[in-house]
Design a binder for these strands. Structure first.
Length: 378
RNA sequence: GGCGGAAUGGCCGAGUGGUCAAUGGCAACAGACUGUAAAUCUGUCGACGGGAGUCUACCAUGGUUCGAACCCAUGUUCCGCCA
């Protein structure tokens, strides 16, 4: 039970609006997916996620394997019922932890020999390990176990990651096909290649040849410039299958999402809305605000008067700044809620614009209004 | 009234003759955060100056010393204990 169709496309940019049918519901794309690594979107309740129209969320294989472990989740009948989330879930394979926990491990073609960041105990991550854990989790979309390499990486290093990612994709697919229930779950492939055009093209060719139901672009937003990211997306835009969903992993930042959509991306996920929210930085239509800043102490206006979220409908910046300065948990919650809604809404508005045929204008207006000099400048 | 102890930068608190504009912590202010080892991390934090540097500073005043936050004397205030 899995189907994707493009229902509208921007004739100028190629931006797509689509529908992704999954066992837990239809996802309207482009879509932003909140990250709920440990079966929890940090500081946000499931009912709030529904309220801000989160259509699908992420969980993480590595983290859920360590805690609570597959038995506890199996005992609850899978991740959906365990965390009381009845909409779609996508699980990351643990591949990203190959990158983010690099100091704790040794990588070979066989897999990743890793030490738990919790207690130092040893475990081996592999494509088969990941597929089996994701089967227990019961996510609607499972991801191949890949190798996300660091940035900057030499061509040689990046090539090794591409080769290994293909090898692991073959093993992921084989294991998935023989053990997982394709009625309940589907598997996406991941393209690597760092910022090297030849490697991106080679990885895309190798991965798409395997016939996955969707394709992710991994290994970006790891420190490269925005231009480099956009360039890689441009390179891939021409070779990714038109009839399959395209998922840009780990993005993100509002302008990156817009630019990604303009380059044919359908799905995004990122910790930025929730992490920045907990750290009191919010995204608004005019840019970015550090809500610990003294300049907001007496502002009796919402974070963003254009936003329809609970935070913006009910609280002043003055109060929110107070919560931020005092480190009150409520501040983390309200900021995270706003940032998620703001980010989700970007995708919603982009979708509307694509369908209405005015995506280029939407993009232009958004970029003109959104000023962020301090950001990771391109 | 007697005896003992203490006074350090916005606050708490180290330092007990030179390497002290003075360790730490807190507060304050600023910045970072992109498939989450993050309710985390980084920076600034006496004044002036772009900087070199200059000035003012460890309760007050006086003294010892080449040199004092640090030693001595007196005073002030605070805290104990005894009458």
């Amino acid at each position: 039970m899995f189907e994707f169709k493009v229902i509208a496309q921007c004739p100028v940019t190629g931006a797509r609006a689509g529908e992704l049918i999954t066992p837990h519901g239809i996802i309207h794309t482009p879509v932003f997916m909140p990250v709920g690594t440990l079966a929890s979107v940090k500081a946000i309740q499931p009912r709030e996620l529904e309220e801000i129209n989160a259509q699908i969320i992420l969980g993480n294989t590595y983290h859920l394997y360590l805690r609570p472990g597959s038995e506890v989740i199996a005992n609850s009948g899978g991740l959906h019922s365990f965390m009381n989330w009845n909409r779609p879930i996508l699980t990351d394979s643990g591949g990203f932890q190959v990158f983010s926990l690099a100091k704790l491990q040794k990588i070979t073609d066989e897999g990743v020999l890793c030490r738990s960041h919790i207690d130092g105990s040893q475990l081996t991550m592999s494509p088969e390990w990941s597929m089996r854990m994701q089967r227990v989790l019961g996510s609607d979309i499972a991801m191949c176990f890949d190798q996300c390499c660091e940035f900057p990486a030499t061509h040689e290093k990046a090539e090794e990651a591409v080769r290994r990612t293909t090898l692991w994709a073959e093993r992921s697919l084989k294991c998935f096909n023989s053990e997982n229930d394709s009625e309940r779950q589907t598997l996406f492939g991941i393209v690597q290649g760092s910022v090297y055009d030849d490697l991106r093209l080679r990885s895309a060719e190798e991965i798409t040849a395997m016939g996955f139901k969707g394709y992710a672009i991994g290994g970006l937003s790891v420190g490269e410039s925005h231009e480099a990211m956009y360039h890689s997306l441009d390179v891939l835009n021409g070779v990714m299958p038109e009839d399959k969903p395209r998922y840009l992993m780990g993005v993100g930042y509002p302008l990156n999402i817009i630019e990604g959509i303009a380059r044919g991306i359908d799905m995004f996920d990122c910790v930025m809305p929730t992490r920045n929210g907990r750290n009191a930085t919010v995204f608004v239509s005019t840019g970015r605000l550090n809500m610990r800043g003294k300049s907001h102490a007496n502002e009796l206006i919402p974070l963003d008067s254009d936003c329809d979220c609970y935070t913006c409908r009910n609280f002043t910046r003055s109060y929110l700044r107070h919560l931020a300065v005092c480190g009150e948990i409520l501040g983390s919650e309200l900021f995270s809620l706003h940032n998620l809604r703001f980010t989700i809404r970007i995708a919603e508005l982009a979708r509307q614009a694509i369908i209405a045929g005015n995506f280029p204008k939407f993009m232009e207006d958004f970029k003109e209004k959104f000023n962020d000099d301090n950001s990771i400048s391109s």
